[in-house]
Design a protein around this nucleic acid. Sequence first.
DNA 1: GATGAATGAGCCTTCATTCAT
DNA 2: GATGAATGAAGGCTCATTCAT
Lengths: 216, 216, 216, 216
Amino acid sequence: MLTDAPKAITLPRKLSREARQVQLIEATIETLAARGFARMTMGDVAKCAGLSHGLVNFHFHTKENLLAETLRYLSNEYCENWQAALAGAGPTAQAQLNALILADFNLAICTPERLAAWCSFWGEAQSRPLYQQECDGNDLAYRLQLQKICAVLVAEGGYCLHIERVARALRLTIDGVWLDLMMANAAYDRAEALATVYTLAASFFPKHFGVDGPLP
Amino acid sequence: MLTDAPKAITLPRKLSREARQVQLIEATIETLAARGFARMTMGDVAKCAGLSHGLVNFHFHTKENLLAETLRYLSNEYCENWQAALAGAGPTAQAQLNALILADFNLAICTPERLAAWCSFWGEAQSRPLYQQECDGNDLAYRLQLQKICAVLVAEGGYCLHIERVARALRLTIDGVWLDLMMANAAYDRAEALATVYTLAASFFPKHFGVDGPLP
Amino acid sequence: MLTDAPKAITLPRKLSREARQVQLIEATIETLAARGFARMTMGDVAKCAGLSHGLVNFHFHTKENLLAETLRYLSNEYCENWQAALAGAGPTAQAQLNALILADFNLAICTPERLAAWCSFWGEAQSRPLYQQECDGNDLAYRLQLQKICAVLVAEGGYCLHIERVARALRLTIDGVWLDLMMANAAYDRAEALATVYTLAASFFPKHFGVDGPLP
Amino acid sequence: MLTDAPKAITLPRKLSREARQVQLIEATIETLAARGFARMTMGDVAKCAGLSHGLVNFHFHTKENLLAETLRYLSNEYCENWQAALAGAGPTAQAQLNALILADFNLAICTPERLAAWCSFWGEAQSRPLYQQECDGNDLAYRLQLQKICAVLVAEGGYCLHIERVARALRLTIDGVWLDLMMANAAYDRAEALATVYTLAASFFPKHFGVDGPLP
DNA sequence: GATGAATGAGCCTTCATTCAT
DNA sequence: GATGAATGAAGGCTCATTCAT
């Protein structure tokens, strides 16, 4: 039929279960970023997605569950991002650390919106063990991976460093610039944030990293 | 009156304006830590303080205002803490950086309860410029102070470092171990947190700091 | 088609209109008994029948109508039961009253489930004239029939009784033991219930009934 | 002040806890009678009492609890009514049975409104053991009392009767005429209802009761 | 100052009903 | 006929805020 073409452009009224759920989770992220955890309502999410509020409950049953699914979605997305970056990097520890650092600056994942949504969960996490459990596994994997890479670098460079502490400082600084960038009063940009991380790497591993990135 | 004596022992029914307000702010911190930002209610605060429902509004008029006052209270307390530490330290930059680092580990300020309350505000901050303004002044003062000290150390040691970035990495790591300690899944303790910061300081300023603290 | 054979064994996907409706009405009775009037939902009925949500509305259009049809179904079933019992009884008034009494203890009609469903309607009846109208005709027929039988017995036995009141007391006692049996705290069983009715019949009509049933 | 007098007439804006709760329970009874169990809402109750809906929750916390308290109130009221009637009756079993019968026709308790409210609970009772427990104690007391009185009458009159069954038939008939009166299609009035009960009493206890009441 | 009953806006959730497939 | 996603009205409940006492 001649009228088939437009259909491919407009959104169909009925979507498959999974497609609709992803749409609603993305709307949740957007709402969380715009309104914060405490003020996000189911109605906001529905309005943001351009759907009726009843549909949100149809797919997620409760607000609690919608938030849990959203957190899982974000956590998995983050995890897959750094794992893909690692898989695409060369075999050297230097290249791998660099890939890990750059992964966190991937524009697809590290949008202000997603950062704000993450931050919403952080603030409430302490009173909600449920949400912690959604991420602990992925977080642990990240930390161990980072430590393993640092250990190789220390061995290679003969640095006199406490591996765990070095890995921790690196991770906290990466997370920290994230948070700084997300705050409205951020006084520096993405490039400066990356430079800050490289400054740290260069200080810990001077044979592998300079202040502008990995040494040749 | 004959019944006056016991009153001197128990809490007086009528407290001075200011004393009552501090009592309520402390109750707010406790409630925030226990319930999180999104679930804290005025009723919780009143119950936690052992006072009536209406009294909270009598003193603070709105919830918004109570939270703002609480944040200001926390922010000032934090600020006074590191400024006092600085004032009590020797005149050298080394001693001053050490004082700043140790100030953040002061047991009076850095209780789990207070950390959790802080964190509650963090999570909501991005969508509430009001709260940011409550702290930006103090935060800025802290950052400038830290940069000034780092600048002196760099000059003294002849380190080849970008002062702003170094100061930033130090600050983010200090804040980061704070947050780690507060999360339930914290895998390390306060001493290890301090050691992590010293590891970083030693890496940046090897002539002034060792992994266990300032060099003699 | 080659795949037709298995279909003959399982429930056919397409049932005749009437068969489907009876299936759904039976599911409604079951749901009403299990959940009560106030908590029964269309979804419960569909799930109970193992059918899809929308099909209930396809056949009954509205919930109100489904309930009305269910009540009519129950009322007619009840009516047909005692009329059949009456038709199967001998021509004497004694035999007919006995048949009427026993009809109410028919295990096919007087199941706990059906009793509970009936009871659901009772509770709402006073505020929903619709449902009353569904039953008033049948109820009236029953009452008149009972009065007619009592009148014959009174004439035969020369009892000095007010026929309407006697018939009413009999009816209320029969209904009452029904309700007692349905309540969870029922302290007696079906046999005792029947004995109670016979005790009453024997008191009113001592020449026709003993405490164990009709006299020879 | 001169304007004090009217205040005594109008309802005070603030009532004591207990007074307000009784007011709300009475409104619940009225609403239950008017709308039925399934359609009663908290908003209906509030509107009926002329108060805000928030106040209902303030005093009763949940709808479930409001209904439970209402049922307890009705049950206790009913119980106190027949116990008072009994206490005011003479010492003879005849006078006591008569008092018990008449108690159920007390115009203060046996209003159409209260009957309809009772009936609302009946319909849902089977699926709500909670509500049953609210009444079982009082019901049992009533049944035992009635049996005791019947036992004395049987002994006095030398009647050949099964006491439990007789007491049960009496109770069911009394309850039954209640229900009949409440249904819209009631074909008889209160006097006829009482006459029906006396007809039964006269049949069981001819030496003590006539069709118009206790014999002299 | 202090209390707690009272108000009402707004939230989460349920569910009868519709309708595209 | 049958399915199940989608809608929206309505209900229960929470809670910030007000105010008479």
